[in-house]
Simulated scan of single mutants.
Amino acid sequence: MSATRVCALSELEQDTARRVEVDGVPMAVVLDGNGEVHAIGDTCTHGDISLSEGFVEGDTLECWAHGSAFSLSTGRPLNLPAYEPVPVYAVTIDGDDVLIDPAVRKEVN
């Protein structure tokens, strides 16, 4: 697979999640307060809830339904009830284009 354009960088609102789908893979794309773009799996691991409808604060995206917050950098849940991480995808910025390849997961330490 190759990276797919999901949106323009200029279309992203700071500290707001946007749902995109690439090759059937739902993702939440976030432009954080530091200007970094993140892409994580859009489905909360606690319930079948879209994370892109949640709340962004700093480096976290919080599920609106049950309150689990996930790190935008690692995908790890930071509190219960979720205990499984969501995938984190590598993002490439090419000019004003935001590109994501769902087959390439970001290396997380």
Rank of each mutant, 00 (worst) to 15 (best):
M1E: 07
A3I: 06
T4F: 01
T4I: 10
V6C: 02
A8F: 03
L9V: 12
L9C: 06
S10C: 04
E11N: 12
E11K: 15
L12P: 10
Q14R: 14
D15Q: 12
A17E: 04
A17Q: 08
R18D: 12
R18H: 15
R18G: 00
R19K: 15
V20H: 07
D23R: 14
G24E: 04
G24F: 06
V25P: 05
P26V: 07
V30C: 08
D32H: 11
D32T: 09
N34S: 15
V37M: 01
V37K: 02
V37G: 13
H38D: 10
H38A: 13
G41N: 09
T43S: 11
T45N: 05
G47C: 06
D48E: 05
I49M: 11
S50E: 07
S52W: 11
S52Q: 02
S52H: 15
S52M: 12
E53N: 15
G54F: 05
G54V: 13
G54E: 03
E57H: 08
G58L: 04
D59V: 10
T60S: 10
L61A: 12
L61R: 08
C63P: 08
W64F: 13
W64V: 15
S68M: 03
S68K: 05
F70N: 08
F70M: 03
S71M: 06
S71R: 06
S71P: 13
S71A: 04
L72V: 15
S73T: 14
S73L: 15
T74C: 10
G75F: 03
R76E: 15
P77Q: 02
L78S: 03
L80A: 09
P81I: 03
P81R: 04
P81N: 01
A82D: 07
Y83A: 00
Y83P: 03
Y83K: 00
Y83S: 11
E84W: 00
E84Y: 02
P85V: 04
P85E: 02
Y89R: 11
V91E: 08
I93P: 00
D96E: 06
D96F: 02
D101C: 08
P102N: 03
P102H: 01
A103M: 05
K106F: 00
K106L: 14
N109A: 11
N109Y: 01
